[in-house]
Every structure is written in structure tokens, then in C-alpha cells.
Amino acid sequence: MKDPRRDNKVDIATRVMSRNDSFAARNHELLRSNDILTLNIISSPGAGKTSLLEAMAGFFGPGLAVIEGDVRTRRDAERVEKAGCKAYQIETGGSCHLDAEAVGKALEHFDLTDGELSILAIENVGNLICPSGYDLGEDMKVGLLSTPEGDDKVLKYPSLFSRIAVLVINKTDLLPMLDFDVDRAVRECRSLNPNVVVFLMSARTGEGVEEFCRFLKGQAELEE
């Protein structure tokens, strides 16, 4: 047999994300087997992920559980708990994304088998780049883009916007004050991702929240 230490070139041909992906596959199987629809919610900081989750907690109540990813503090977990659902906070301690191994450990803090839980939302660390390459075991990535960020962001972050199943354009209540062109953002997202499902929303006023939640409920029922 050839001793690789004696060759001066060793072919490896291995995907670097393969370790994360094997943890993600494990999470996915666990969640699927308990009929839980899992979302990986990704946006820049301040786009309204936690506000969206608070609004979702109002719709789903204890049928929703949330894993919060933040560099520090339990503040976001406390916000969504107050809104009526169970939450667990992962403090990444400086890391800019969640990985599947950390999510797998967080899942141990939930009773997935009680039948009450139908949707798990994972709020990723606020960042449009790093979380995009890390599958966590979700059924779908939800990309949240808020109107003050500008309508040109989709093509600047193609790694993320080409992978999302759902685009939520949040803070539509601010549209009259901004130059944000909704059609442009949607068109450019579809140019990376022809099948993306789009929702316009203001998590603050509640506009569009119910439509989004009904869509998720329908998707969760498909899982069962």
C-alpha cells in the first residue's frame, strides 16, 4: 500500500463544510422525526429578527420554540419568552455564526417529543455572510431584509440570498420615508433564486405577520 507520507502530493478533495454538514444532518433527522418545521432566520443586525419572533410567538404560542444565537447576552431569549414561547440562548462568545454542533447541543434543552412543538425558529447571529455556509439542520433558511438597509443588498450577499427559501422584507411601515424599491429587491433575489417565496411585513405594526405565520403553519402541516 502506498504510504501517503512518502508522496510529495496528497489528494484530499474534501468539502471543508463536511463536518458541520454531518451535525446538520443529525439535527435535521431528529427534528423531522418529531414533525417539527425548522427555520434558520438570517439577517444583518437590527433587521428585526427578534421582533419577527415576538410576533410569531403571539401567533403560535407554545407551538413555537426559539434558539437564539448572539455573541453575548440572553436579552433576545428573554424578549421572546416574554412573548409566550420557550427559548434557549446560545452565546457564541465572539463567533459570527451558529454551527450545527452548537444547535445540536441546544436541542437537548427542549422536549421535542411532547407533541406541542410544531415550529423551531433558530435566530442566527446578525450577519449576512458567515451564517450562509453553515447548515444547521433546518428545513428552510429565511432571509430577512429590512427596508432601511437598502434595496441593493441582495446581490451584494449572493451566498445568502441564493440559499433562502423565504425572503421577508421587513419594516415596510418605513417605505414612505425611504427610496427602497421593493420590486428591485425581489427581482434581484429571484435572479439568484427563482423559487423564493416573498413576504412584505412590518413586525412592528403587525402588517403581513399573519400571512407569514399561516404560510409556516401550512408548511409545518406538510411535515406531519
Binding site: K9, I12, A13, T14, R15, L155, E188, R190, L192
Partner: peptide, 27 residues
């Protein structure tokens, strides 16, 4: 991804590849 199709300029497209990230070999 700002540039569209070189033939017709459209940005309607499907992605066939582009997510590669591999360690190919060491020497």
C-alpha cells in the same frame, strides 16, 4: 452577480454551481 446573461442581458437565471469550498490537495 450584477451582470446578466452575456447574450440577452437578463438576470433571470438558475445557479448550476458556485458554492465550492474544498481542500484539494497538500504538497
Amino acid at each position: 452577480f450584477y451582470d446578466g446573461c452575456p447574450s440577452c442581458g437578463s438576470i433571470n437565471r438558475n445557479i448550476l454551481s458556485g458554492r465550492e469550498f474544498t481542500v484539494d490537495s497538500v504538497e
